[in-house]
Amino acid sequence: MAQARHKREPGALPSAVLATGVHLALVAVLVFGVSWQSRRPETVTAELWPRLPEPPVVRQQRPEPKPQVQPPPLPRPAPKPVPETPKKPDIAVAAKKAPPKKPAVEEPPLDLDFRRRMERQLAEELTLVQREQLKTEPVKKPPVKAPVPSVSAPSVPAVAVDPGYVNRVRAKIRGNITLPAGLAGNPEAIFEVEQLPTGEVLSVKLRTSSGEKAYDDSVERAILKSSPLPRPEPGQYQRRLELRFRPME
């Protein structure tokens, strides 16, 4: 009788299958549901600039540095004429277009600055030489790419950091520094701080340690604590700031 009853107990196998199905569904919901929810929306960082950094200038400078590939001394003088932009590209373009136009180009020597004029002449001659070289072997573009950063890179820090602004930033950070006990001497620690235009600190890098780990750490904590940093004057924003700190200030 008892055995008969056990046999009669219905649906042992279907129940097991259904229970497995329920749990598989649960696992699927958990895995896919949660992973779907935890997918981050694509973050887009937008930085607002008060002025555009005049893109045409940069673009037209590119053909110009070409001649400067070969002569090693030239990359230095090249950045200096960057501010008076409109004329230079003309030269470069003119020189590229046709040599007979040269006389028209040589009008600008109205400049009183002698050195600049000399440089320009040198550049023109070099462009001519370069043009001839290009005619003979036009496939020389890869090396051209190298000087581009050398010209554009110096053009970025052309905006000098306002010392007053840096002092304000340092003052705010200094207020948050807790000097560790038993600090010997007055060593200098240099930090590189990356910030957003709103002043929020993105990262702090120790450029030069003061030699005292405790002091470095406390300054780093103070920088993070000072976020957001004071805002610069409009147009003075710099993503990376170099800040120097000394214990006795």
Binding site: E9, P10, G11, A12, S15, A16, L18, A19, H23
Partner: peptide
Amino acid sequence: FMSWYFIFRKWFG
């Protein structure tokens, strides 16, 4: 798993 198994079994039964 066991509870779901028994739920289905009891339900059928």
